[in-house]
């Protein structure tokens, strides 16, 4: 297992396992987990649009997470 830090922004805050919040939290995922795996562990529905940033850089869903990395996940906003 590896330990990563996760922050779920805006409407995705409801998927925080410690209660609705955008505060970053630490969690363990199996070594070799991708962003897609992480989203499944967090029970974020696959259809829900999101943008994923690892250590503040945008990454694709097949990105393999590394020990100590920080994942920030946002929904798309586009209103004017």
């Amino acid at each position: 297992m590896i330990t990563i830090e996760v922050a779920l922004f805006a409407t995705l805050r409801i998927y925080n396992p410690n209660g609705e919040s955008s505060e970053p939290f630490k969690m363990q995922v199996p070594e070799g987990s991708t962003v897609t795996n992480l989203l499944a562990i967090l029970k974020i529905p696959p259809g829900e649009s999101k943008q994923v940033f690892i250590n503040s850089c945008r990454q694709e869903l097949d990105y393999i997470l590394q020990e100590g990395e920080r994942a920030a996940i946002f929904p798309p906003i586009a209103g004017g």
Partner: peptide
């Protein structure tokens, strides 16, 4: 392109349509 990585013709709006 970096902000809306999942953009396609079918997705023209964000969560504001609901919120």
């Amino acid at each position: 392109k970096a902000i809306y990585s999942s953009f396609n013709k079918g997705q023209n709006k964000g969560i504001e349509t609901e919120l």
